[in-house]
Design a protein around this nucleic acid. Structure first.
Lengths: 192, 192
DNA sequence: ATTCCATCCTGACACCGTAAAGATTGGATT
DNA sequence: AATCCAATCTTTACGGTGTCAGGATGGAAT
């Protein structure tokens, strides 16, 4: 039933899917190009033609990761029209992304393997940053407010992932959200 | 001049030093047990007797890393007696550590390779956490204040390392400190 | 003096990333 | 329609890595 033509047809997309699955299972540090190829049902050297080396594949996965990241933020911001509540929603989405796709989170924010000079990856990262700037601008904040929101959201997500935030690890989901809201609230520019 | 006795004498310490140097040069993702052994002038299988596997060595290095981390915080807190200024100093020290020892920073906070269940590593991490709790307690804050200070400090340091904080990457050192102070100031519990 | 055992080395194996060269195929050119 | 070409994928090979098994060494305890 599974005929295997010599030419795959859309191997690039298949490798991206296999790579994302492999990433989720093994994590960035356990990521293997040969395992991705095997999962896609192709020889171990095939990926080279589409992504060059392992860094190329991880760069493409990171670019895709930023899309997933943005989607998580959007999903949480969609519920309201209040700009302040939108900023809190973005922080919630940040936590969601870290919890649901930890390997992608680590790939995007804590790995040196993706090629940071890649134009598409850079554009994806820039797009996410500009989105936060827009959120803060709607609140009348400045660049320091952007840094504060960015950093607090990222810090909570990253530390929780590593199990380093003793104050959050034992909490229920509702309690965690309350904590995130509490921290973000005092960070956002005061109501004008 | 360099006689090479069969028994090294203090190979464990030598491997830790070589490992830390190797970590600084290659980063966590480029870390190699064989390279560490070669740097220490010993066979590639020698480290196993002292650390078991590569995870064991990285666990020991992470434990040591927490000491270096704490030292950076202490150095910045030492300048003042004002508890509020001490908390800001801790945030400064956090940035210093990330800048001066990026690989150690990544090993401690963003790697799955160290064994999180290791008692000594756990104790070292717990010690660092309790230190922050003490800083906040001196300000009359609660657990959410600890999370806020922890997360904001960590977020700025980690994002700056990854080059993701557009708002901080172009700044001079003085400007960066001003930014850190601005963010931390609004996070600390209000003056009573 | 002899035994013992922690320490360290050598050798081997499976896995990894990458490069080179060959096989296959679809599509463009003639 | 026949041919060529270039893209795609496979095979093979090489050096590097972590880990295990077994052997060598030498200090310490008996």
């Amino acid at each position: 039933m599974e005929e295997k033509p010599y030419h795959h047809g859309d191997l690039r997309a298949a490798l991206l899917a296999a790579g994302e699955a492999e990433l989720a299972e093994r994590g960035v540090e356990g990521f293997s190009l040969r395992a991705v190829a095997k999962r896609a049902g192709v020889s171990h050297a095939a990926p080279a033609h589409h992504f060059g080396d392992v860094g190329g594949l991880l760069t493409a996965l990171a670019t895709e990761g930023f899309v997933r990241f943005q989607a998580k933020l959007d999903a949480r911001e969609a519920g309201t029209d209040d700009p302040r509540e939108k900023a809190v929603g973005a922080a919630f989405g940040y936590q969601d992304f870290a919890r649901d796709r930890p390997a992608l989170f680590r790939l995007i924010f804590s790995s040196a393997k993706p090629d940071a000079s890649n134009p598409e990856l850079h554009a994806a990262a820039e797009h996410a940053y500009r989105h936060l700037v827009g959120l803060i601008a709607a609140l009348g904040g400045d660049e320091s407010d952007v840094v504060a929101l960015w950093a607090a959201s990222h810090g909570m997500a990253d530390l929780a992932l590593g199990g380093r935030l003793r104050g959050m690890s034992g909490l229920s989901m509702a309690e965690r959200e309350a904590m995130v809201r509490s921290v973000i609230s005092r960070i956002l520019p005061p109501v004008s």
